[in-house]
Amino acid sequence: MGKSERVGNKCNKIYGSFQDIHASKVLEIQISEILASISDAFYALNSNWEFTYFNREAERLLLHTEAEVLGRNIWEVFPEAVGTPVFEVYERVAATGKPESFEYLFPGDGKWYEINASPSNNGISCYFKNTDVRKRSAEELVRADAEKRRILESIGDAFFTTTGDFVVTYWNARAEDLLGITRQQILGKNLWEVFPDAVNLPSYTHYRRVLDTKESASFEDFYGRWLEVNAHPAGDGLSVFFRDISIKKEAEENLRKAFEEKNTILESIGDAFFAVDHEWTITYWNREAERVLGRSREQVLGTNLWVSYADAVDSDFYRQYHHAMATGSKVTFEEYYPAIEKWFEVSAYPSADGLSVYFK
């Protein structure tokens, strides 16, 4: 800036002042270069909401060049943002002079952004980054976790998880029903402190082994009722599925007793008796059959009748047994067995399991 003194039409003196702005200009250029090179997108707005800066990352994310937006009002460039949270936050930052950070779903591209808005020079400065992948992934994790919980609550099995120190981290509704402990009572607590009387049960040993070997285990245990348990390593802890098999165990016990009773009867009758399945595999051979035919049950059980008694293939035994099996009808006959030089009176009864044969 300068002035001149004139006498008449003649310049008599010129004087003025100037200052060195090299340092500030260099700083301005350096700041501009830094803002252009940072990984975050950045733009600045003045008090009239006009763009005064728009870096390369902002260009890439918002699909506008710096030349297109500088000097223009942000709400004219991005009218779809008017009335949305970003509009409200920017207005508030400008009014209060306090910075704010927030997540924002931009209607213009349907993507999520993390924005940091700060007051500066009668306007605001905004750093932002695209967090759409992270946000979508987090939402997917939430949905997946909700779906996992829905499945674990809907399955028929009881289920729980623990850490490597047996701290319970999940306990579904079926586990509550079977063991009489609610999730509020057990979550975050040590399994064996809640069930101290179970420390001496097979479950304790199996769970320890699963943690040590990282191999799954399936077993049965009794804790007020019979339980079928499947324990699996899960990270550093356990995932355990179990179900009430008391009815099954009762049925098995009744079946065992019935089988023992049947064996007692078959061993006590005076007749010799044996049974075969539909493949002619010998499944039962009583003591009288051992005595009469001279072969122990250890020798014949699990063998094919016509392999063990190949000399009877062309006999009436063979024909009658096959007839009974084929027709599902009882047969009664007499036949001579040359190998031991004896006549036998035979009754053969077909069943769903094969053929039962009484002879004497």
Rank of each mutant, 00 (worst) to 15 (best):
R6V: 09
G8Q: 10
G8N: 14
K10H: 12
I14M: 14
Y15N: 02
G16S: 12
F18N: 07
Q19K: 13
D20W: 12
A23N: 11
E28H: 11
I31R: 14
L35R: 06
A41I: 09
A44K: 12
A44Y: 05
L45Q: 05
N46Y: 06
W49D: 13
T52M: 07
Y53A: 08
F54Q: 05
N55S: 07
T65N: 13
T65R: 06
V69A: 08
E80R: 04
T84H: 07
E91H: 12
R92V: 07
A95N: 09
T96F: 04
T96L: 04
F102N: 07
Y104T: 00
Y104F: 15
W112D: 02
Y113H: 08
A117Y: 01
P119R: 06
C126S: 06
C126F: 01
K129A: 03
K129G: 04
V133H: 12
R136T: 03
R143D: 03
R143A: 13
K148V: 05
R150T: 13
S154P: 00
A158T: 05
F160R: 05
G164F: 06
T169H: 02
A173N: 11
A175N: 07
L178G: 07
L191D: 02
W192P: 06
F195K: 09
D197N: 11
R209K: 13
T213L: 13
T213R: 15
K214D: 00
S216N: 12
D221M: 10
R225E: 12
N230V: 09
A231C: 05
P233Y: 13
A234Q: 13
G235T: 06
S239D: 06
V240R: 06
D244I: 02
S246T: 15
I247D: 14
K248H: 15
E250K: 14
A251F: 11
N254W: 08
L255C: 11
R256G: 08
F259C: 03
F259I: 02
F259V: 08
I265H: 00
I265R: 00
I269A: 02
D271P: 06
F273M: 09
A275T: 02
N286W: 03
A289P: 04
G294V: 03
R297T: 00
L301Q: 05
G302M: 04
R319H: 10
H322L: 06
H323W: 12
A326R: 12
G328D: 08
A348K: 07
Y349V: 15
S351C: 14
A352E: 15
V357R: 02
Y358N: 08
